[in-house]
Design a protein around this nucleic acid. Structure first.
Lengths: 230, 230
DNA sequence: ACACCAAATTAGACGAATCTAACCCAAAAG
DNA sequence: CTTTTGGGTTAGATTCGTCTAATTTGGTGT
């Protein structure tokens, strides 16, 4: 059986592969998980022994298909839990990450499938992140672009908010910005700030690091059904 | 912070105190947790250092008030989870114990209070066990007696089923015996078996170890409201 | 080519939770 | 009042995940 720690490493490596390119350097993993480099070396050896990652000494690691499946399983748990906590237990989207981060390692397959059923097999979590399917096929991220890459004009719909800071998330939802929100870029200030206008007419200014985290796409012109995020 | 293991030991010691009398012998704890005696000795030392149990060398341990509070907290988590899994996720009462046994150590106080709220502050879990209150006051078990102590005649209501074996629990619920069931002792056979008759008229025979686990009391003559188990 | 440097690995230690083997109480039995 | 003996404790080892300190590696820059 895999320990919660091993699952954490696999999830981290998988995420890093989605952004930068494999192989993933130990130092990167160390920073993400807030451990020292030797700890990563020994853990990575263990994962390699189990066939969950491929290791090139002094280079880094990449997940094997089996390792990727494990990562997807944990990510599915995490995102289902976030959705569940929000929809069934009344959590705010700012609070769900921490709780899901712990529970994702401890729920059974039974729990997973019952939660998925109760939620009617959701495809996106409260932050707009896609939930891996029960079959754990690799998810194709990104048909969306960062808000920070857009210039003035044109309607955009918030697809995904890749930020987990509770204060920032609370600020955004209070300002009316969550997945599904339709907005227009009003001004791109040369001081690292973007101002957007919401459908309500209100303007919201956001520093670059937040605008980087907000992913947008062309607005959904069909009827709102909450599942049409693909 | 307490580890999940320390919580397990405290819960076990607390449970044993509720049955037999303190101090609780290491061997008893070892058997309940399926570990060896030396393991118990070292764990008990650690708990004593933390002020969670009082230890009399070569005698055994008893929980301190702080230790008892920790045990009650975990038991509250466990029973709330069992109730939640049953009522909200559609689990059968035979399945909930295992899942709750794991999750009880990992849910936050936030989770606990939200689940309690969603369930409308339940006082009993699906097996009829009382759920410690949010204030963690010691619960007064037992106003009920074992079915095995009753002889023929007289209506009895099932208050509590102190059995966690999934197969046995499934058998009982299939037979129509769950907390709230009203029955009459039909025959006490001298071969270690009791036969009861349900309100439906059907008879069910039960071996002694099951009859020991079923706790009964005088039937609730008031209207059924599902909370009148006290 | 050679030296340098940042990053990775190896070496050795530690705390938690567990085990087996060896030893020691203390309460019951003479 | 001694002896027996079951159960408890001590000693020492193991695994997991982590650390710090020392060493090695491989790519960079001159």
């Amino acid at each position: 059986m895999l320990s919660a720690k091993m699952e954490d490493y696999l999830k981290a490596i998988y995420r890093l592969e989605r952004d930068g390119d494999p192989p993933i350097a130990p130092s990167t993993i160390a920073e993400m998980l807030d451990v020292t480099a030797p700890t990563v070396t020994s853990m990575v050896e263990k994962l390699a022994d189990r066939g969950l990652v491929e290791r090139e000494k002094y280079k880094g690691v990449r997940t094997t298909p089996e390792g990727e499946t494990v990562a997807l399983e944990i990510i599915r748990h995490h995102r289902l839990l976030e959705t569940f906590l929000t929809e069934q237990l009344g959590y705010d989207w700012a609070e769900v990450h921490e709780e899901a981060e712990v529970l994702e390692h401890h729920i059974s397959e039974e729990f997973e499938s019952r939660v998925a059923a109760v939620l009617d097999e959701p495809e996106f979590d409260p932050h707009g992140d896609p939930i891996p399917s029960d079959s754990l096929d690799p998810i194709d991220d990104e048909s969306a672009t960062a808000l920070s890459e857009h210039s003035e004009g044109g309607q955009l719909e918030v697809a995904r908010v890749r930020d987990r800071d509770p204060d920032e998330l609370t600020y955004l939802s209070d300002a009316g910005i969550t997945p599904g929100t339709v907005l227009t870029v009003e001004e791109v200030a040369p001081i690292g700030m973007v101002t957007v206008q919401l459908e309500s007419g209100s303007s919201v200014s956001l520093p670059d690091h937040i605008a980087d985290a907000i992913q947008v796409r062309a607005p959904d012109t069909q009827g709102e059904d909450g599942v049409s995020q693909a």
